[in-house]
């Protein structure tokens, strides 16, 4: 195996994730359409999650086959467990991501209901227009 290529590709992956992070952050903050914001937010969540799992990866060495963190032997001897520890990837980030994905899904479900309601009430999902209406409303309330 070519260690230079492997390192380059791994760092390329990390950089791509940072780029995705920046693009979606732009999408969430600067886009005026709520649906666009929603799409960007879901991608942002996914990017953070992929990044997390990437942290728990490890370099393959010749003669070492990586495996997912699941033991395939039902009656393991200490040697098998030792081998398993040497070969498995980090399970903790995976557990974090599992939690984070569900949380992201829950938040997105809620945001969907809210976007639908915004559409029912304001007949638009453009935050600039809604902001304009709100400024007028607050002005009326304050006077």
């Amino acid at each position: 195996m070519d260690i230079e290529l492997v390192k380059f590709m791994f760092i390329l992956t990390v950089m791509s994730l940072y780029l995705n992070f920046a693009i979606t952050l732009y999408g969430v903050v600067a886009k005026v359409n709520l649906v666009k914001k929603l799409i960007a937010l879901t991608i942002l969540q996914d990017t953070v999650n992929v990044f997390t799992v990437l942290i728990g990866y490890r370099l393959w060495r010749p003669g070492l086959i990586l495996q997912p963190p699941a033991l395939t032997d039902m009656n393991p001897t200490p040697e098998i467990i030792k081998d398993f520890v040497e070969r498995s990837v980090d399970p903790l980030p995976q557990a974090f991501v599992l939690t984070a994905i569900v949380i992201g899904l829950a938040v997105t479900l809620f945001l969907t209901t809210i976007v639908l309601h915004v559409n029912y009430h304001f007949k638009t999902v453009n935050v600039d227009e809604i902001g304009g209406m709100k400024r007028r409303y607050i002005h009326e309330e304050a006077v």
Partner: peptide, 30 residues
């Protein structure tokens, strides 16, 4: 490729199956 089958199980279901549904639902109404 990162050896995370547990996550793929949830992730594919959530972001290939459920996100498009809710997004298409919103787009249909919006």
């Amino acid at each position: 490729l990162l050896m995370a089958p547990d996550i793929v199980l949830v992730y594919v279901a959530v972001s290939v199956g459920i996100y498009p549904l809710i997004l298409i639902l919103v787009v249909k109404r919006v």
